[in-house]
């Protein structure tokens, strides 16, 4: 411990100084630079340090662009990068993994929405925030620890009480067609920014690969209850009562859903 004390202070000082110069968006205290960093025959102390500073911002901007490809498309690269730089200043990474870099971005956008003090909110801001949330969820679900050791149901004659949804089957209700926009953006189809419109979707992971499905409102509610109850019977019953549906018609509809979802690998065997 006797050795550590002065070391900590000395290293702390240098590290604190360098870190603030590398990650800060504000101008530097240039006077102090040559007291800490040696100039070389080719570069000044400031130029040496600038290499780290440029790399810091470039690296993390690129990372954010990878994590939010649809949002960066929607905002436009330049505006996205402007947001990113402010975000990095407000929420510098505190994780050992870059996978967490964008975890506060949705919250940051909400905090910094341009219509924050307006009574009438602008819908396009909500679109961007919902898109940010969805994109980060996609990142999380891709690499989340989940059971992949299951039997996918392939036989459409399977009894309903043997059905369960995949361990990763996330359901989304959005005020915009977020998942459609997302799919088109990542597939370079240049989607236009959509107008407000309720949308429902499911993000599944099957055999470690992701898939996104658009849902009808009833399908969304059915799957939501099914996830809660693990019971097709209970889910159909609740759907009937909550939406005042004819039971026979719903059973006919369910058989169509069931066949389609089994074909698409939604269900595992209980």
């Amino acid at each position: 411990m006797e050795i550590d004390k002065p070391v900590q202070i000395e290293l702390d000082t240098i590290y604190g100084w360098m870190q603030s110069h590398v990650i800060s968006r504000h101008p530097w205290d240039i006077q102090s630079l040559e007291k800490v960093v040696k100039p070389s025959s080719k570069l000044s102390a400031q130029q040496h340090l600038s290499i780290y500073r440029r790399s810091y911002f470039s690296r993390l901007r690129e990372c954010m662009l990878v994590q939010f490809p649809a949002l960066s498309y929607a905002l436009g690269r330049d505006l996205f990068i402007q947001f990113t730089d402010i975000y990095l200043a407000q929420y510098p990474s505190q994780s050992y993994t870059l996978a967490d870099l964008g975890q506060h971005f949705e919250h940051f956008l909400e905090e910094n929405r341009p219509d924050k003090y307006q009574e009438q909110k602008e819908w396009w801001v909500d679109f961007m925030i919902q898109l940010a949330n969805f994109e980060f969820q996609v990142n999380i679900k891709f690499d989340e620890i989940a059971d992949e050791n299951y039997h996918l149901v392939k036989d459409i004659s399977i009894k309903d009480d043997h059905l369960n949804v995949l361990p990763i089957c996330e359901l989304y209700a959005h005020d915009f067609p977020i998942s459609i926009f997302y799919k088109e953006a990542i597939n370079d189809k240049s989607p236009e920014q959509p107008l407000p419109q309720k949308s429902y979707s499911a993000l599944i992971r099957r055999n470690y690969r992701l898939g996104i499905f658009e849902l009808q409102p009833l399908q969304y509610h059915f799957l939501k209850v099914l996830k809660e109850t693990n019971s097709v019977k209970e889910s159909l019953s609740r759907l009937c009562s909550e939406f005042d549906l004819d039971q026979n018609e719903l059973m006919a509809t369910w058989s169509i859903w069931k066949e389609a979802w089994i074909e698409e690998g939604f269900f595992i065997k209980k």
Binding site: I51, R54, S55, S58, R59, L60, E62, C63, V66, Q67, P69, A70, T97, L98, A99, L101, V138, N139, F142, D143, K183, I186, R206, R209, L210, G211, I212, F213, E214, L215, Q216, Q219, A260, E264, G265
Partner: peptide, 27 residues
């Protein structure tokens, strides 16, 4: 290129948007 990065990030983040195997439209 002023955007050259030392220790590039490609190897540190998953390009998840390239990892979709199955995407479907409306049903």
């Amino acid at each position: 290129n002023s955007r050259l990065v030392s220790n590039p990030i490609d190897f540190m983040v998953n390009p998840v948007s390239k990892e979709f195997e199955i995407t479907y439209g409306d049903r």
